[in-house]
Amino acid sequence: MLEKSKIYAELPDTALTDYFRNAGDMLAEEAKILGAVIREILAADESLTHKAIILRLISAIESTNDVVKGDVIRKTLEIVVDHTMDDI
C-alpha cells in the first residue's frame, strides 16, 4: 500500500497536492477518498489524470447509497475540479 505522500506525488500537478497537504486534518475524509481513488487508478494500471480521478469520483457518488459518504465524495469531487487544470 502506498503511503499518503507517495500517492500525492503521483498526481499530475501540485495544486491539488498542496491543497490537501495544507488542509491537515480538516479534510481527512476527503483525503482518504482521494487516496483510495488514486490507488484504484494505479492498481488498474491506468494513467493518473484529472479526468480519471473525476470519473472515478462520479462513479463512486452514483454507486453509494450512504448519504453521508456521498456528501464526502461530492466534496472531494468539488475540490478536485476546483484545484486542477484541464488535462492536455
Rank of each mutant, 00 (worst) to 15 (best):
A23M: 06
A23C: 07
A23S: 15
G24A: 10
D25K: 12
D25M: 11
D25I: 14
M26N: 15
M26Q: 13
L27W: 01
L27M: 15
E29D: 14
A31G: 15
A31M: 12
A31H: 05
I33P: 01
I33L: 02
I33N: 05
L34P: 03
L34T: 08
V37D: 01
V37A: 08
V37C: 06
I38N: 01
I38Y: 00
I38C: 13
R39D: 13
E40I: 11
I41Y: 05
I41A: 01
I41C: 01
A44R: 14
A44E: 09
A44C: 03
A44L: 06
D45A: 08
D45M: 06
D45P: 00
E46P: 01
E46H: 12
S47K: 12
T49W: 02
H50R: 15
K51S: 10
K51I: 09
A52V: 06
A52G: 01
I53R: 04
I53H: 02
I54D: 00
I54Y: 03
R56E: 14
R56W: 01
L57I: 07
L57T: 08
I58D: 08
I58Q: 14
S59Q: 11
S59D: 12
A60Q: 04
E62Y: 04
E62G: 06
S63N: 12
S63K: 14
S63V: 03
D66I: 04
V67Q: 09
V67I: 10
V67W: 00
